[in-house]
Design a protein around this nucleic acid. Structure first.
Lengths: 204, 204
DNA sequence: CCGCTCACCAACCGATCGATACAAAACCTG
DNA sequence: CAGGTTTTGTATCGATCGGTTGGTGAGCGG
């Protein structure tokens, strides 16, 4: 809708997707509330009226940024979950997650968590949007695990939803760790340990 | 130092520890930047000048609040790590952590993470303080695991530091989950799965 | 080249941010 | 009850917050 260049009038001096990517990085690093309009416009290379004319408001800009980020993430998750076994799916999910959290071409950690785990009351919707995104990922993971359980691909007595929650939780913890400076190797060593829990039978 | 009542002058109309506890809850729920002075003084039942006379600044108030919180947490961790076996220590740590994250007498989640995982540039020190607190917990966990490894209480080839990081990571992930509304049972089910990873030999 | 349409930019809006100045009130000492 | 000392409440500080207003000028259709 707003991406096609209108035939008349002065053309835009910036690319919408490019400046959205810049804004995403600012939100990613400083969080929704920590990212001021000045910081955003500075990184995007545009000024306030251009931002508002293009995106509407700071909140709508954030939602666009997160939607983009989330779509990418969902695509990665889908790829990981396409592995033929539950173990393979979990390993692919956790390893690609750990890689993504520590990749050098963007801020460390995860926008879903950095963005605004806690917000002031008037920005509570931001936290909700982010939590909903994470819940969606966990649900996809849970469905894959349920399928695996039905196929006999998981030991008897394994709770598929709990397993998905465990995997998702570990990934979220890795995001916290990555934001605090943990390296890719640190995270992968943690994944090594987690994978030992996946296939083992229930203890007791 | 500031807790003893001076012999002269008008006495304080509030208890310092009480209002500090109230402030802690506000920071816990909304984060450092999301907790405005108005919200803080409102919850503490005092007005701005009293706050500044007592605590110095918003940042110093937060540091006091977090120090108090962290001391309590360290005490709990010490108790958990006093278990005779590594498995027992990890289980006690994760279970008490999961309970604490979902207890009803304070905001869900963990102040160390809710407080300010991401902050604006001028509040970057807040994130550092919180990360340092978490790192201290992980270090204590790591030392306990190292001791266990030296005692033959862990399978050969287990990396004690990586195991500590795994456990700490899971706890941090639980904090994220709890903040999004996960129940105590949800978290404990995740702990059940994690514990399966602790004692198993390295796969492969 | 004219005229229309839009994007650009500087300056500014009210509201709120964290932090203070000042004077009245409360308590202890003498 | 007077003098000294500290806390309390109100009212406000400058700075910054997210968001907006007009004037200017770039580019296209005629």
């Amino acid at each position: 809708m707003s991406t096609e260049t209108p035939a008349i009038g002065r053309p835009r001096a910036f690319d919408e997707e490019t400046v959205l990517a810049r804004a995403t990085e600012v939100f990613w690093q400083y969080g929704y509330e920590g990212a001021s309009l000045s910081a955003l416009t500075g990184a995007m290379g545009i000024n306030r009226p251009s931002l508002y004319a293009t995106f509407g408001s700071k909140e709508q800009l954030f939602r666009r940024a997160f939607a983009r980020y989330h779509e990418d993430k969902v695509a990665n998750v889908r790829t990981a979950l396409a592995q033929p076994t539950a173990y393979g799916a979990i390993e692919a999910f956790l390893r690609s997650s750990a890689d993504g959290l520590t990749a050098g071409d963007h801020p460390a950690g995860c926008l879903s968590i950095q963005g605004g785990l806690a917000c002031s009351p008037e920005n509570g919707r931001i936290s909700e949007v982010l939590a909903a995104g994470r819940a969606e990922t966990e649900a996809a993971l849970g469905e894959r695990m349920s399928r695996a359980a039905a196929e006999g691909d998981l030991p008897d007595g394994v709770d598929a939803r709990a397993l998905a929650r465990f995997v998702m939780t570990l990934s979220e913890g890795h995001a916290v760790h990555a934001a605090a400076g943990a390296s890719r190797e640190d995270l992968q060593a943690s994944v090594d340990i987690a994978l030992r829990a996946v296939m083992g039978p229930a203890r007791g």
